[in-house]
Design a protein around this nucleic acid. Structure first.
Lengths: 123, 123
DNA sequence: CCCATAAATTGACATCCATCGATGCGTTGG
DNA sequence: CCAACGCATCGATGGATGTCAATTTATGGG
């Protein structure tokens, strides 16, 4: 969604050519620093055992939505910790939060994981 | 910490969760704790701007291999830092190292990124 | 031999991060 | 109106992590 793989910078930076020292030159453009940082931020959100299990637990639920009370016990973590991880996943655009009454229901953002996986495979 | 998170049982189908309290029950099994930790370790290796750019730079090279001397300057990081990141990527099975003479050439492990992406998308 | 180069290792340091207990806020039910 | 419940936030803390300067190791050339 927000990741533009194409480099927005037309290159005021002279991409060298002078060295040609030990290796072959680049055949295509690599990822830009800004895109790398953005992609890394998204990957960091998923690169945690607890958060991976949270995503999996939410995806495994029958109607693909789950409340915190259902996620705390199978993880073996305290309720504040689970809330923290869920907030990270929501901020990263992986999950959505929907508070109905006393409970907060989380569900997967459709295509979010696939988008991440696609960007990773297309490096 | 009243109980250990990782059961000694093999990883395939460890838990049968009793039915939940407030929400719908799980329709399929979620990822196990051991698998989550292993996947998280691989994802952590890639969840860093510098390492993402390293992977991209290596992949972008003409013969898909690059030495440290070619990677230090475009990253804007010191040589020890680049060496450190490359070691992380090699340890994670993303890159391979091949020292020829004075130079060390790094290249992508075929299918490593796709495998990671597949595991991520299949959560 | 000795020096120059390439890369890895070490040690130190600052920052980030996962985790918890305690607390606050909003909702539900009696 | 008040107690109970679900969840978020706060503050603290121990451990992991990214970064660099200095040093070490290994290779090659004069």
């Amino acid at each position: 969604m927000s990741f533009t793989v194409a480099p927005p910078a037309p290159d005021s930076t002279p991409v060298d050519t002078d060295t040609a020292a030990c290796c072959a030159p680049a055949s295509r453009e690599a990822i830009g620093a800004a895109d790398a940082e953005k992609l890394a931020r998204s990957l960091k959100a998923v690169a945690d055992p607890a958060r991976l299990r949270l995503v999996s637990l939410v995806a495994a639920h029958a109607d693909e939505e789950a409340c915190v009370c259902d996620l705390t016990e199978p993880l073996g973590l305290s309720q504040p910790t689970v809330s923290h991880h869920l907030k990270v996943l929501v901020d990263a655009g992986i999950l959505t939060r929907d508070k109905r009454g006393t409970w907060a229901y989380y569900r997967l953002v459709p295509g979010a994981l696939d988008s991440l996986a696609g960007l990773l495979a297309g490096l």
